[in-house]
Design a protein around this nucleic acid. Structure first.
Lengths: 341, 341
DNA sequence: AATCATGCTCAAAGCGCTTTGGATGGCAAC
DNA sequence: GTTGCCATCCAAAGCGCTTTGAGCATGATT
């Protein structure tokens, strides 16, 4: 069923039917009701494609997911973020189109999205330090919003980020206050902006308390379980091991716990652990009492909000860029305790 | 830059340019080269929308992701599956469009996808027992392929599945052969077809070895870490606890391990664990030596293949439906050992 | 020299929608 | 009885592409 058929069926012109359906005023209430009724009866829905051609809009938002080509790793955070964004899109009649792409092909994908007029805007995932994508999108004139920020970029752009710096500074201070003096950091890849900021917060808190910044207590890598396990294991086996570990992801934290317990130590007693927790739906940090003390911020909520910000920007192109900085909650769980003396 | 401008630029008609770009034979090699060169220079890409209108194709595949509305849980498997499917799509010039949808709205989403002519086909995720979606898509005449199968459905349809039944039967036998006689099953929601099949394999193996099927040793629920933890904890605390546990997901298995170790027991010694492992990129089961003995099958590879099957079916509508049954590998890790007598 | 393929190119229609710029008719006001 | 003004409705153009059905050289064949 298309517009033509529907309008013939009703004995009206396509114009009138289109207007009735799109809420234009120059249609009598009676006619509008009749049209709406018929549309429902025939299960008519305008073709997105044709509508887009006619209006110049795509009614779609692109998400370009970079896949680290080294480990083919898809950021586990991504599923929940997408779920949040999807809620916003479907409420606004937008489609979400996804491109999974190896790092090195990203630029081509953005250009393609633009020149094929496939989307009205894009969400940038996993911004890196000095991320080149921002300037690229700027130049292309493709509206975009960034999940995170990119240090070193001067251009204005719309973003939503967790206050990683303050979260990790607070976590470090929290451990300090419990008496810990050797606090390790198991971080994400430091080319990623969020990892950089977390490290920054961590170091800042150490320096503020006149603790040394010890490279032997810092690791960075892709945040898998195994990475957490290995990093923690190596540090615990080293001379002068840490009494507390700050970890950038709940998944790595599971590996950290494995390393701790494998050594006959108890997490929360011999070694304290604080982790960041993205509140992923399938990986809850315990229920009533959290397993891990954690800096917590829902990535799903982030998806909802950032999508809304992007749609808003598309609707009002001349509005200034928007920013949201979410503070993570510091939730105390069973994985931390006073430093043993 | 659009076709019209490009062809004017070249002093050719739109027809010729279009044909040159789409590889039709009736264009001289010289002209074709010239056209291709210009297209590259101007970074011209045909508008998907217009192309779709003209050809009647959408050049897009829909993925409808059901989100259990109870727990807002997004299946963690989904990210890797999508990544695999995305590889196939981008190789074939298809777009992937994603709809995140609460269970009860699913039917409307499929109908909408069809009537808006937004996609050429869809992938069905997470089939349930007697899944109504299959009949619906059949009736709608929308090509589709199922990741998994739906018991109780008679209609022919294209699917790709892991042989869950045989995998769990083998895992059960493996534990039996190690001397275990009380083997528990921590399974996914049994409305999900895969969970049903796994249970079937498990029970079948038990019966074959004349072991009782004990409901006290069987749990089913959404496969979170906490679910594994609680289920294992409850069973281990019960009278006559299991000596081995079969688990439906690596994430739940992490919870199982937590429950085991929290009780001062050692996994692989006091309690053996076998889990299914979807080979998720961010949750590798150890590296050289697997942490968990596992039935393993890459969900990313499944995504790649199923997408290819769907595209093939769209290209050849009259071909019979296709099926692929993947056998899981049984990989021995550190989590299993002989039953203590 | 007339005819016929062959190879290359083009104008125009059509895909399903929105939107512009009228047309039509009824009714109140003069 | 005009005029003017709403309130409704419509025909047709246009969005950017593909594709049908022809047209025009060119060189080969009779």
């Amino acid at each position: 069923m298309n517009l033509k058929e529907l309008s013939q069926n009703l004995g009206l012109s396509q114009t009138t039917v289109s207007r009735a359906l799109n809420g234009y005023p120059e249609v009598s209430p009676a006619t509008r009701a009749r049209v709406e009724e018929a549309a429902r009866a025939f299960n008519y829905r305008p073709s997105n494609r044709a509508k887009g051609l006619a209006t110049g809009q795509a009614l779609a938002i692109g998400h370009v997911i970079p896949v680290s080509n080294k480990h083919e790793m898809v950021n586990p955070v991504f599923g929940d973020f997408i779920a949040g964004a999807g809620e916003t899109y479907s409420r606004h009649g937008y489609e979400m189109i996804l491109s999974i792409v190896a790092d090195e092909d990203e630029e081509q994908v953005y250009r393609g999205l633009k020149s094929r007029r496939a989307v009205d805007g894009v969400i940038v995932h996993g911004p890196r330090m000095d991320d080149a994508r921002i300037a690229l999108l700027h130049d292309l004139g493709l509206p975009f919003a960034v999940h995170g920020r990119a240090s070193g970029i001067e251009l204005p752009y719309t973003w939503l980020d967790v206050n990683n710096r303050s979260a990790f500074a607070r976590a470090t201070s929290f451990l300090y206050d419990l008496g810990h003096r050797r606090i390790a950091l198991i971080n994400g890849l430091e080319m990623m902006d969020f990892a950089h900021r977390r490290r920054d917060g961590y170091e800042h808190a150490l320096v503020e308390r006149e603790l040394p910044v010890d490279p032997a207590l810092m690791r960075s890598g892709e945040m898998t379980e195994v990475f957490g396990y290995r990093s923690a294991g190596a540090m615990l086996d080293g001379e002068n091991p840490p009494t507390a570990i700050l970890c950038s992801s709940l998944i790595s934290a599971l590996g950290v716990r494995r390393a701790i317990e494998e050594r006959g130590l108890r997490m929360g007693r011999n070694v304290s652990v604080v982790t960041h927790d993205d509140a992923l739906s399938y990986l809850q940090n315990g229920d009533d009492v959290p397993i891990f003390t954690a800096t917590r911020s829902s990535v799903r909520e982030a998806g909802r909000r950032l999508a809304a910000m992007l749609l808003d920007q598309i609707a009002k192109p001349h509005k200034a860029t928007q920013h949201q900085l979410l503070e993570a909650e510091l939730m105390v769980g069973q994985s931390t305790g006073p430093a043993l003396s």
